[in-house]
């Protein structure tokens, strides 16, 4: 049944009327109009819906709303909130500089996962990068550029203090 609940998304508190069992993805897209997280499979297999919750990359299509309520202190970050996140903004910029997209449908989820990785480990190894991308699929074959974009973001981070 629908009820009013409060969640924190992109630094703001939002009251939404939704079923607490609803996957977070639908709440973000349809209740809050954050369309940058995308439906791909509904099974957590492809990563197109990935958002950051308390610094962790999470598949929002398999995350129930009740598990991310504001009163549990959880902060949700979507691609729409990346501009306010120094590392996130830098990762997104690196993807644009490398033109690391074809259709682009999978990219936002990947940007979120890369951001979560670089927040945790500033200089990840290749194995750590691949592990972070383990739950992501890209069908256009943009992988090479995606990996290059993440390397660029790592270099940019290493170059100095973030804005």
């Amino acid at each position: 049944m629908r009820s009013s609940v409060t969640i924190r998304v992109n630094g703001r508190t939002h009251e939404v009327r939704a079923d607490p069992d609803a996957p977070l993805l639908y709440v973000l897209r349809n209740n809050l109009d954050f369309k940058g997280s995308r439906f791909g499979c509904g099974n957590g297999d492809c990563g197109a819906c990935t958002v950051m919750i308390d610094g962790h990359a999470v598949q929002s299509c398999t995350t129930p709303l009740w598990s991310v309520l504001a009163n549990s202190g959880q902060e949700i970050l979507t691609v729409e909130g990346l501009a306010a996140d120094p590392i996130g903004a830098l990762v997104r910029e690196a993807f644009l500089e490398e033109q690391a997209a074809q259709c682009g449908y999978c990219i936002n989820g990947i940007i979120i996962s890369a951001t979560a990785l670089l927040k945790r480990i500033a200089q990840p190894s290749q194995a750590e990068i691949l592990a972070a991308l383990d739950r992501h699929l890209c069908r256009c074959g943009t992988h090479v550029r995606i990996l290059r974009a993440i390397q660029r973001a790592i270099r940019l981070m290493a170059q100095g203090p973030l804005p």
């Binding site: 954050f34 369309k35 439906f39 997104r92 644009l96 997209a101 682009g104 990219i107 936002n108």
Partner: peptide
């Protein structure tokens, strides 16, 4: 496309 709404979806 790397910001938010951009697709027919």
């Amino acid at each position: 496309k790397l910001s938010g709404a951009a697709y027919v979806h």
